Simulated assay, not measured.
Amino acid sequence: MENFLERHPGVAEGNTNPFDNALFITTVGPSFLAAGTSVLTTEAPMLFKLAKANALAFIGSDGGTRGAQFEQAVRHYHATYISPLVTDEQLALTIANGF
């Protein structure tokens, strides 16, 4: 075990080289940022796609029927934007037409 650690000192102890640390941060940081952004931009459309049937039921019942998936999409929309830009009826129409 000692022989391995002598040949590979960076494996057993933290990396204290400032250049390596900066290289790691500038390489991994943007990768995590890009991955997180991708997840956020693909999650909302999938949520709205799943709510399409509920949105159609909401429209057909003049707002009387609010399915669980449509309600989840509405809550996501209200949580994402500070002041809702559209009403629930307009959101239902958007989901029904766009997804």
Rank of each mutant, 00 (worst) to 15 (best):
F24T: 04
T16W: 06
L85C: 05
T94F: 06
K49G: 05
F99P: 08
F4D: 07
H76Y: 15
D88W: 00
A68Y: 08
Y77S: 02
K49Q: 13
P18R: 03
A44G: 04
G60N: 15
A79F: 11
A57W: 04
A44M: 07
V86N: 05
T65F: 07
A35H: 03
P84F: 04
R75K: 15
H8I: 06
L56K: 10
E13P: 06
E71N: 10
P45H: 03
T16N: 10
L91W: 04
T80K: 07
T16L: 12
G67Q: 02
V28N: 06
A92P: 03
T26R: 06
N21C: 12
E13H: 11
I95P: 00
T87C: 05
D20G: 10
I59E: 01
N21T: 12
N3H: 15
T37Y: 12
G63K: 03
V74E: 01
P30V: 06
R75L: 15
D88I: 05
L93R: 14
E71R: 08
N15C: 06
T87S: 12
D20K: 15
H8S: 08
Y81S: 08
H78P: 06
G63F: 02
R66K: 14
N54Y: 00
M1S: 12
S31N: 01
A53H: 05
D62H: 13
A79P: 04
A34P: 01
N21G: 08
A73K: 00
G63C: 05
L91M: 05
K52Q: 12
L50C: 00
K52I: 02
N15L: 03
V28Y: 11
M1N: 10
L56F: 02
A12Q: 08
A22K: 10
A22C: 10
V74W: 09
A34M: 10
R7A: 12
A12K: 11
T41M: 12
G29N: 03
T87R: 03
V39P: 00
A22I: 11
E71A: 11
